[in-house]
Design a protein around this nucleic acid. Structure first.
Length: 215
DNA sequence: CTCCCGATAT
DNA sequence: ATATCAGGAG
């Protein structure tokens, strides 16, 4: 298991490798970010941005998503995948936003998770990127990187991973660290062909050393 | 745990 | 052909 001082070194390396890591989901306001993040489940952000480029032209307010039929919304997001669940959730979410929140998105993380299709990860992304609330959203990349490095256990669920990350990372660095870990996981510590040979963290990485030994 | 699901990389 | 992609709900 990784030591805390080793994790602090990881944070330094993440910053050196990806100093300008940022949210890659294109959006112009908190509502668009919420929709984009909901759509991003099991899809690449490149693909999401391709779809939202047209989607956000056609749908600008919660009311716009309610006006059309469910089938029409499904068609507009079909290529993303999981489109039936996502369309249904977006509709219900917009209904709820209008009737219970006067069309204004709450800035509280736990309040956001009350919306259909919005779990802890999506809520964390919205509050951190749109409202400046420190948060460390654990997505597929963050989880994979954390477990490969041995910063948490393989059996840990996402909540346990998030807890450990928050306890070992200064609060003011939560959001930056989240972005840097995503870039690190997406472009370097990739799911299929991780670049272990050129990794500056190889000497302290549980999984990396195992992989290098096999090859 | 399973299901939802099309696009893309390997 | 198969694995994976900024997950969430039942």
């Amino acid at each position: 298991m990784l030591r805390k001082t080793e994790w602090q070194h990881c944070l330094q390396v993440f910053e050196e490798m990806f100093p300008d890591a940022h949210c890659e989901l294109v959006h112009q306001n908190p509502f668009e970010l919420l929709i984009a993040t909901l759509l991003s489940a099991q899809a690449t952000d490149v693909h999401v941005n391709k779809v939202t480029a047209e989607l956000f032209q056609k749908y600008r307010t919660p009311e716009d998503y309610i006006r059309v039929s469910l089938e029409e919304l499904e068609n507009d997001i079909r290529s993303i995948g999981l489109y039936r669940n996502k369309a249904k959730n977006i509709r219900a979410l917009c209904e709820m936003l209008i009737t219970e929140y006067n069309g204004i998105l709450p800035e509280d993380r736990d309040e956001l998770t009350k919306f259909p299709g919005v779990g802890r990860k999506t809520a964390n992304v919205v509050v951190s990127n749109a409202f400046g609330v420190p948060a460390l959203a654990v997505d597929t990349h963050v989880e994979r990187v954390s477990k490969r490095l041995g910063m948490c256990r393989w059996k840990d669920n996402v909540m346990q991973v998030e807890d450990k990350l928050m306890r070992w990372t200064p609060r003011e660095e939560w959001t930056n660290t989240h972005h840097r870990m995503i870039f690190f996981g997406r472009y370097h510590c990739k799911a299929q062909n991780p670049n272990c040979p050129e990794c500056p963290l190889l000497d302290l990485c549980r999984e990396g050393k195992k992989r290098m030994r096999v090859k």
